[in-house]
Amino acid sequence: MRLDGKLADRRGGIESATEKGKSSSKKSKRRQKKPLKAVQTLFNTCKEVFADGGAGTIPSQEDVRRLSSILDTLGPENVGLNPNLPFFRCIDSERPPSITYLHLYEDSKFSIGIFCLPKSAVIPLHNHPGMTVFGKLLFGSMHIKSYDWVDSESSEIVAPTEGLCLAKVKMDAVLKAPCETSILYPASGGNMHRFTAVTSCAVLDVLGPPYSTPEGRVCTYYDDFPYSNSSGDTVLHGEVDGYAWLKARAEKPDDFTVGSAEYRGPKIVNK
C-alpha cells in the first residue's frame, strides 16, 4: 500500500520534529545539574555554618537545625560503609578492640570524620573544649554517657579530694540507628562523653572548630567516680543520682587505640 505524497511529506515532517524534540530534550537534561551527593551537601553546609565561627562560638539555632537535618538523613550507604568491612571486626580477643578513624575533611573552621567501632570498643570519656559537635550514628547500637560541669563557684561545691570536679549526667542511654543527630555545645549538651559500642557501629562527627593544640583546644581524658556527700556538702540537698566526680587524666588511657584508614566514600570537592 502506497502513502499519498502529501501525507508522506507531513509524516516525514512530524517524525523530523519529534526527533528534534528528543534531541533537544537530551541536551536539556545534560545541561541540568546533577543532584549533589549527600556528603558534598554536608560539606557545603558546614562551610556556611562555621564560616564565621571560632572557639566558643555557637551557630545560630537555624544553622544548627539546618545542619542536623542533613545529618539526620545520612546512612552508611552515603559514605561507602557497611557492617561487613574489616574496620568493624574484633581481630584480637585478648585486647580491647581497636577503633578506626576515617578522615573526610579538616580546616581551621571545622572537621568531618567517621569513627568505626567493633563491638565492645570504647572511646573513653573526653572533652571538646570550645567546640560545637554534631554526632550521627550511621548504623549499629552505641551506649553514650555524657556530662556537663556543675558550676562549683555558684553552688559552693566542695570536692572530697583535690583534682575532682563535679559534673551532672546529661545522657546515659543506648542509641540505635536510625536516630536523630546528637549535638553538644562548649558548655552544655554533654560536652564530655564516652562511647561504648553495644554492636559494631559507626559514628560521623562534625567538630566546629576542630581540636588544635596551638590554639589550646586539646583533648582531655577523664576518669569518673560516683558522687557522694561524704564531704558534708548539702548544696545538692542529698541528691546523688545524676552526678559524678570527674578527674582529668595526665594522658589518654593505654588501652585506647585509634588507627586511620582511607575514606573510600564519595569524595568532597572544596570549591
Rank of each mutant, 00 (worst) to 15 (best):
M1T: 08
G5Y: 09
E15K: 10
T18H: 11
E19L: 14
K20D: 14
S23T: 11
R31L: 14
Q32L: 15
K33A: 14
K34R: 14
K34F: 07
V39K: 05
V39H: 05
L42G: 09
F43P: 00
F43G: 00
E48L: 13
D52H: 12
G54L: 00
T57M: 01
T57E: 06
R66V: 06
L67T: 03
S68L: 07
D72Q: 02
T73R: 09
T73F: 01
E77I: 08
P83V: 05
R89M: 10
I91Q: 13
I91H: 11
E94H: 13
R95Y: 07
I99A: 00
Y101P: 00
Y101V: 02
L102N: 04
H103C: 05
H103L: 08
L104I: 15
L104P: 08
D107T: 02
I112R: 00
C116A: 10
A121Q: 09
P124C: 11
L125C: 05
P129L: 08
M131K: 00
F134W: 07
S141Q: 15
M142H: 04
D148V: 11
D148Q: 07
V150C: 09
S154R: 13
S155F: 13
E156I: 03
V158F: 13
G163F: 09
L166N: 04
K168D: 06
V169D: 10
M171R: 13
D172Q: 11
D172E: 12
V174N: 11
V174L: 12
V174W: 14
I183N: 03
I183C: 09
S188E: 13
N191R: 12
R194E: 15
T196M: 08
S200V: 01
V206N: 02
V206W: 02
P210Y: 00
Y211E: 01
P214C: 03
C219F: 00
T220Q: 08
T220C: 04
F225Q: 04
S231F: 14
T234M: 09
G238N: 06
G242W: 10
K247A: 13
A248D: 03
A250I: 14
K252P: 10
P253S: 04
D254Y: 06
F256L: 08
V258Y: 04
G259N: 13
S260Y: 13
A261V: 12
G265W: 09
K271T: 08
K271M: 06
